[in-house]
Design a protein around this nucleic acid. Structure first.
Lengths: 350, 350
DNA sequence: ACCAGATGAGAAAACCTTTTCTCATTGAAA
DNA sequence: TTTCAATGAGAAAAGGTTTTCTCATCTGGT
């Protein structure tokens, strides 16, 4: 049926008011109108205000497409990610968006999954739309997005994903984060500190494990084998069964590779009648609010400051777009400890 | 310092190759070149292929900004949300993005928080950039975004957020979802089914409660007061304490308003030595993977099909943009039950 | 040889804004 | 009265593409 009932919606696309309309209405040329509205050129104050008034009255808004075409700058950037549902790129994206919006720059959201065809599609679309730059972000720092961003001719920044050599990248400082966590436990007097973490195949697993061991060595505390498994609560349960099932002296602290493992550990300990934090301190990683604050007790954990990381990445891209030179290299941004109650150190303010 | 060392990055912005370059190289006019590349107009087959070949060799890609300016269509839409971190708009956004990318349309991501100044900023930016349409999405179906999208002159679709009167909206069918859940419990032979849900202030709380009661009435089962509280695990624990602390006959099933409450209920029941699902069946709402599959046992729950909802919204917006008429109104999309193990009905395939 | 129609290709306008250049007018100085 | 500088405002080009017109050439028919 091609009939249209009254109740159907078809958008009456009003022709947007152009500079020409303003000029006509104000009785001047478009050139003069443009200059009046941009506070440029010479004209009587009367003319200028009259034109501005007319523009306001007509609701004139300059067409960005025309401006971009002329200026060779679109005030638009592309945000490439393979982590739509995930935990990590969300705060990163929020930070990026934050930094850019304040500078009048819009963000194209491009989810490339792990599909290089989709990636190429998005990159081509962004290039066609003349984005001023691209930020790549992902769910793993040691995996590259399925796209080649090497010779695009526009600025590219990597945030929380594996960068190309010679490019500019922002990642969290996992060694420092792990150090923060373990030093916290040591500082609270824990002596037998174990580390339960994710799969062997993740670079961060090894970085954090190395920092964990370094702190223990420096403190003269005993070293334990790092337990590598999965990033899940279930693995936390399993690890507790292994660590607390034997006869030897049980650990008095567990540094977990993420909050889910930590939560599994806490639950498993409670089920064994082991008190947290009195008997065993537990510390997590990621500060995933939904997990960390639902734990009983709420989880002390390491926050990677991903929003700040994203903001940093956004601002750096803008510098690059403005033609300012930027040192290439990987910048590691510090993590921060969020103290809740799972290590026996209640927050100072409550 | 304004010196630039060799190691610094400054992007050498190559001038992109234009149609003019192609025409020059192929020895024809830009008009002919344009027609050749768009398979339009009349010319010898030889000329056409020669131009196409030249364009390919030069790596020509038409400038979208110029095309958009001319066509009055930007192949770009704006996605407004106030739920950056949240659970709901993520799958909705993924669905939208999905639907649009396949049609060559790019998406501006606009996070407006709950800040109307920010909202206006984004809407203005989108209008200036001549988006073809806008999709609004949020974290609550009964709250309006802090922006006015009423008389924009471009198509607007609401997805999982409160629509303006007379507009087009997609939401989940919460009555049907709740019905699905409660009927599942009834079908499994549960007789004393209670409902633990979120705050009184949410419309969905009342919709689901009404459906819950309707199913019980239809089945001739006893009605219990709906327990309204918070959307948290802690509330799940509290509710269990109330429901299973007294002397009367305990419930044999709990229908929870979301997965977090359900998880709290399951944990609390286990701690009381009450077996799930043998003694009590528990069912959740949202199918939030991270919560539902970490529960012990994994949670049977209602999935709102938000990805499909987003895709639907995206496709409808495209129809509208193409000038096709669409019935206004709120479309309720059906939920789906995801059976895991918390109700005593192991999935058929395992 | 002449004309009608078909064919291949280019000129120019359109989309909208910004910027540079040019020009006419005015007021003041000589 | 003539000259110079300053002033206010418009014409035109630029940015890149698409589309409509126009035009010249060619083919085939008489």
């Amino acid at each position: 049926m091609t009939d249209i009932t009254d109740s159907e919606i078809r958008i009456a696309r009003r022709r947007p008011v152009t500079l020409r309309d303003v000029a006509l209405e104000a009785g001047v040329s478009v050139a003069t109108a443009s200059k009046a509205l941009n506070d440029q050129g010479r004209m009587t104050a009367e003319t200028r205000t009259r034109i501005q008034e007319t523009a306001r009255r007509l609701g004139f808004r300059p067409n960005s497409l025309a401006q971009s075409l002329l200026r060779q700058r679109s005030f638009t950037v592309g945000l490439l990610t393979n982590d739509t549902y995930g935990r990590f790129s969300l705060p990163v994206m929020a930070g990026i968006s934050d930094a850019l919006v304040d500078n009048g720059v819009s963000v194209f959201l491009c989810n490339v999954e792990d599909d290089s065809r989709l990636g190429q599609l998005h990159v081509d679309a962004m290039l066609d739309k003349r984005v001023d730059g691209i930020i790549a972000t992902g769910k793993r720092v040691d995996r590259h997005l399925p796209v080649d961003l090497a010779q695009l001719g526009i600025p590219v920044i990597y945030a929380f994903t594996q960068p190309d050599p010679g490019s500019i990248a922002f990642v969290s400082d996992d060694e420092q984060g792990a150090q923060l966590a373990v030093e916290h436990l040591v500082g609270l007097g824990r002596r037998r500190i174990v580390h339960v973490t994710g799969p062997d195949t993740f670079t961060v697993v090894h970085q954090r494990a190395a920092a964990y061991q370094a702190v223990l060595r420096a403190a003269g505390l005993p070293l334990y084998d790092v337990l590598m498994g999965r990033w899940s609560e279930a693995w936390g349960h399993e690890a507790v069964a292994r660590l607390f099932g034997g006869d030897g002296p049980a650990p008095d602290a567990v540094f977990c590779g993420n909050d889910q493992i930590a939560r599994g550990v806490i639950d498993a300990l409670r089920e064994r009648g082991i008190r947290v934090p009195e008997d065993v301190g537990v510390i997590g990683f990621d500060n995933w609010e939904i997990v960390a604050s639902a734990s009983r007790p709420p989880l002390t954990t390491v926050d990677m400051n991903l929003v700040a990381l994203g903001r940093e990445a956004g601002l750096t891209l803008l510098s690059l777009v403005d033609g300012k030179p930027v040192e290439p290299g990987i910048r590691k941004l510090p993590c921060r400890l969020v103290v809740r109650q799972s290590c026996g150190h209640p927050p100072p303010d409550g």
